[in-house]
Amino acid sequence: MSIVPAAPAAGRPNPFPVSWTTRAAWLGLAIYSVYAASLLDVTWERFVFGLGNGARFIGRMLPPAFTHMDLLWKGLAESLEIAIIATVFGIVLSLPVGLAASRNLMPIWVSWPARAFIALCRSFHPVIVAILFVKAVGFGAIAGILALIVASVGFIAKLFAEAIEEISLKQVEAVRATGASFMNVIFMAVVPQVLARFTGFATYQLDSNLRNSTMVGIVGGGGIGSTLFTAFQKFDYDFVLTILLAIIAIIFVGEILAGWVRKTFQ
């Protein structure tokens, strides 16, 4: 059993034709990684230096501090409130926007601007949107809520429009044939068909809003993110760890609940 590369025997085709595109792609990826790493000053010394720093950092995080629990609960409660309110308003707003963006029910002069609006909502990170809202409505939960509503519309309205575009037009025609008005068509033929997928979107978005609500606080949007950022600025790393653990726990529980809800509603 020699480990020589298998030479094609006489008269046989090469058993493993080489794909040069694949090789070039891998090579390109490797070269890029090295190049980008050097560009970003990702050097080994810095990494090793960081590791020592990281050890100290982790040392300061441990053990987690349970001293400011009132702040923790207040922040978590506010994050939950932000997530719930943003999800509800996000869904309610997504209904008309998604409907307007569906190309099978709407003329192009309605669907195109609606789609552009959705794209605009999706393009900006919730944190950036939160910054703008903090400027508009000041620090606090309301800025966070508004930012997450925008994110929710960007996500749900898109899925909603896609769901409407997939529905069976037979039912729509059947209802339309009875001489129903446009709104009647929507409520009798379109809504029942997409409603089934609605809880799925809703639980997913709640989950996603909960994650994002821990973040908008960093730029002044309220919730546990504000608490976290303050703890960071005060170098209370042991409290930072407590907050992080609490966030992970809440999202873990939320995920289990969401899975359970989805199962119930299947």
């Binding site: 059993m1 020699s2 480990i3 590369p5 298998a6 030479a7 025997a9 046989r12 058993p15």
Partner: peptide
């Protein structure tokens, strides 16, 4: 890196 004998046998 299969054994050339195996490749031949496979053919």
């Amino acid at each position: 890196r299969f054994d050339p004998a195996d490749i031949e046998r496979a053919f």
